[in-house]
């Protein structure tokens, strides 16, 4: 977990998100994916990466398989079938497989960028950051977190009570299942509505809304934030240039084309700037651990 200013990590991750959506060129997509993966590994959160990939692997595989099946474009035919149920006559081409793979990579990028984001700033800082601008929403969110924790304990307890009152939760029929769940839901529904008044009283007692709020934590831009935001700015410039020169684009159909010399040079520049961030992160991580040793 790093301790970047939330604004820095939001900008960086939004950039990555939209770059992935915009670029079609597999080289760029692979660069971005590698960036996220290496970044996560530097931060030392391999497990969160694996967790999210496990969770979304079916979606990704589905995309990779789906595209070649439905796309009849492309010239390099690998497989042909005269009749497949529902799909009819299909041909599977090298181009459509490449297209599917590229889309799979894009989805992977977008999925992992959410993990990456959660590692860049501490949740406390994110709260403080939003509290400044969206104070109602942050208070509601943190109250909701509290309530979810309490209710999930309540749920377990009430379920036990109901089991001992003869409710059978292991129903196969969906409507019977709904009926079994009903007492639990109704009880937490009524109890927490009653609790909502108590919570409001507590807010009142804490003088919420009595004056213009100040903030307990003050977030500061550190050196690393300036550095990463500098590359963010450069990335935006690159983004605009590439958009104008059509560099991020790539046509899979009718046949895969080679990358042009200009494209590759541009990719190099793009990657140089993007991967500067990794250097900063690595340096920051090391510097932080050095500092903690002292």
């Amino acid at each position: 977990m790093l301790k970047l200013h939330p604004a820095t990590s939001i900008i960086l991750c939004l950039l990555l998100f939209f770059l992935t959506l915009l670029y079609n060129n597999p080289l760029y997509i692979i660069s971005i994916l590698l960036f996220i993966v290496i970044g996560t590994l530097i931060i030392g959160e391999r497990s969160s990466l694996i967790k999210v990939l496990k969770y979304s692997k079916f979606n990704i595989i589905f995309l990779i398989l789906l595209n070649p099946l439905i796309s009849q474009n492309g010239r390099t035919i690998i497989f042909k079938a005269s009749y497949v149920p529902f799909l009819g006559r299909i041909k599977i081409t090298l181009e459509s497989i490449a297209f599917g793979l590229n889309m799979g990579l894009k989805l992977t990028c977008i999925t992992t960028v959410f993990v990456f984001y959660s590692l860049l700033s501490e949740r406390d800082d994110i709260f403080s950051f939003f509290a400044k601008y969206l104070n109602k929403l942050t208070i509601i969110s943190s109250m909701t977190i509290n309530i979810i924790h309490k209710l999930s304990i309540d749920l377990k307890r009430i379920k036990e009570v109901m089991v001992l009152r003869g409710v059978n939760f292991n129903q196969k029929n969906i409507f019977k299942k709904v009926r079994a769940v009903y007492p639990i839901i109704k009880i937490i529904f009524i109890s927490s509505l009653e609790g909502s008044l108590d919570r409001a009283e507590a807010l009142h007692s804490r003088l919420y809304g009595k004056a213009k709020r100040t903030n307990y934590y003050i977030l500061r831009f550190r050196k690393i934030d300036y550095m990463i935001n500098m590359t963010n700015l450069l990335l935006i410039i690159i983004f605009i240039i590439s958009f104008m020169l059509n560099y991020g684009d790539y046509d899979f159909y009718p046949t895969l084309r080679n990358f042009s010399y200009h494209e590759l040079i541009f990719l190099l520049v793009f990657n140089f700037i993007l991967y500067l961030n990794l250097l900063f992160i690595w340096w920051y991580k090391k510097w932080k651990s050095l500092k903690s040793e002292i």
């Binding site: 509601i140 109250m143 309530i147 999930s152 937490i188 909502s196």
Partner: peptide, 15 residues
């Protein structure tokens, strides 16, 4: 009261 109710209902729906 509305803030508290919104948090409560969101908590309920979330849990």
């Amino acid at each position: 009261k509305e803030i508290s109710l919104l948090a409560t209902l969101s908590g309920l729906a979330g849990v």
